[in-house]
């Protein structure tokens, strides 16, 4: 009987759990945490195809948002509109099951459902100076009016591609990067936040 093999996160080599401070508070500065693994699927299809729109809604429990940057949430799943006809569906911890559910609902419809949960790492940056930290390396406008809660955007952070998601009114952002860029993203954010005071938080 083969043993259950360990699953390593993108930042496992940094030993963050051991370095995390007890409090969940970022204090006056910035708190950084690696978000735990979550399932993700890259979903492609045409919203003007009734079968696609209906199938996706049935599988996810909410209608896919049409506007790029919008996010629709139902239960543990969220669909982030990355581009016209492209969504990142995230949530839960069973990637194959999420994929299977969508494929079943989209049977016979022209669509693409590709599991990508292993491909990404997500860093959560929170605190009063979170926006200023991101602003250092990202050309988006992080002013509260320009980047309201519930929105996402793809852009650059220093030299890497990122997906930034502001989930709530809290001063916090989820920064999703490709797995192999996670180390650089973490080091960069930690270094950028140093002048404000940075704490490693539990994920």
């Amino acid at each position: 009987m083969p043993e259950i093999l360990e699953h390593h996160s993108a930042l496992a080599h940094l030993g963050l759990a051991a370095r995390a401070v007890a409090t969940r508070d970022a204090g006056q500065g910035v708190g950084l945490a690696e978000a735990p693994y979550r399932a993700a699927v890259n979903l492609r299809g045409r919203l003007d195809d009734a079968g696609f729109a209906a199938g996706a809604e049935q599988a996810l429990g909410c209608a896919l948002p049409a506007e790029v940057g919008a996010v629709a949430t139902a239960g543990e799943l969220s669909a982030l509109a990355l581009g016209p006809g492209e969504w990142l569906v995230v949530g839960g911890s069973d990637g194959p099951a999420l994929r299977a559910r969508l494929l079943a609902a989209l049977e016979g419809v022209f669509a693409s459902v590709v599991e990508v949960g292993q491909q990404y790492a997500t860093i959560r940056i929170a605190g009063p100076k979170a926006a200023e930290t991101l602003q250092k390396g990202c050309p988006l406008d992080f002013d509260a009016a320009a980047f309201p809660a519930g929105r996402c955007a793809q852009s650059l952070l220093s030299k890497i591609d990122v997906l930034v998601w502001k989930r709530s009114e809290e001063p916090a952002f989820e920064v999703t990067v490709r797995r192999s860029f996670a180390d650089y993203a973490w080091r960069w954010l930690h270094d950028a936040a140093r002048e404000y005071g940075v704490a490693i938080l539990a994920g």
């Binding site: 790029v68 050309p139 955007a153 793809q154 852009s155 650059l156």
Partner: peptide, 11 residues
């Protein structure tokens, strides 16, 4: 046309 005004860096 999809994401709104962005810096040239992204293109």
């Amino acid at each position: 046309p999809h994401c709104g005004p962005r810096a040239e860096l992204e293109f």
